[in-house]
Simulated assay, not measured.
Amino acid sequence: MLKVLLVVLLFAVATYALIRVIERRGVARPVRRRTEPRPPARPVGPDDDEDFLRDLDRKRRHPEDPDAPAS
Rank of each mutant, 00 (worst) to 15 (best):
V21G: 08
P63Q: 05
D49T: 07
T35Y: 02
R54A: 05
A70F: 06
V27M: 04
I22A: 12
R32C: 06
L53S: 00
V7G: 13
R20K: 12
A70R: 04
R42A: 13
A70Y: 02
P37Q: 04
R54L: 00
R25F: 13
P39I: 03
R58I: 08
R42L: 03
E50Q: 08
P46R: 01
V4E: 15
L6M: 15
P46V: 04
F11Y: 10
L2F: 15
K3M: 15
P39C: 07
P69N: 07
V8K: 07
R61A: 14
M1V: 14
V21A: 14
I19N: 03
G45H: 10
Y16W: 15
V13M: 12
T15F: 15
G45R: 03
D47Q: 10
A12T: 10
L2K: 06
E36I: 09
D55G: 13
L53I: 06
L56R: 11
G26Y: 03
P40W: 03
H62S: 11
P46N: 00
L6S: 14
L53K: 01
E36C: 11
T35H: 07
R38H: 09
D65H: 03
P63E: 09
R29M: 09
D48A: 07
V13Y: 07
M1E: 15
A68H: 08
S71F: 02
V31Y: 09
R25I: 08
D49P: 04
L56E: 01
L9V: 13
E50D: 05
A41D: 04
L56I: 03
R32V: 09
D49G: 01
R54K: 02
R29L: 02
V27S: 07
V13G: 11
D49Q: 02
A14Y: 12
G26I: 09
F11M: 15
P66G: 07
L53M: 06
E50I: 00
L6N: 06
H62M: 08
R60T: 13
R58A: 09
A12C: 14
D67Y: 13
L18P: 00
V8E: 12
L53P: 00
S71H: 11
R34W: 05
G45Q: 10
L18G: 07
D48M: 08
P30R: 08
A41Y: 01
F11S: 15
P40G: 07
I19G: 05
R32N: 07
P37T: 04
V13C: 12
E64K: 03
E64I: 00
S71M: 05
R34A: 00
F11K: 14
R58Y: 08
A70I: 05
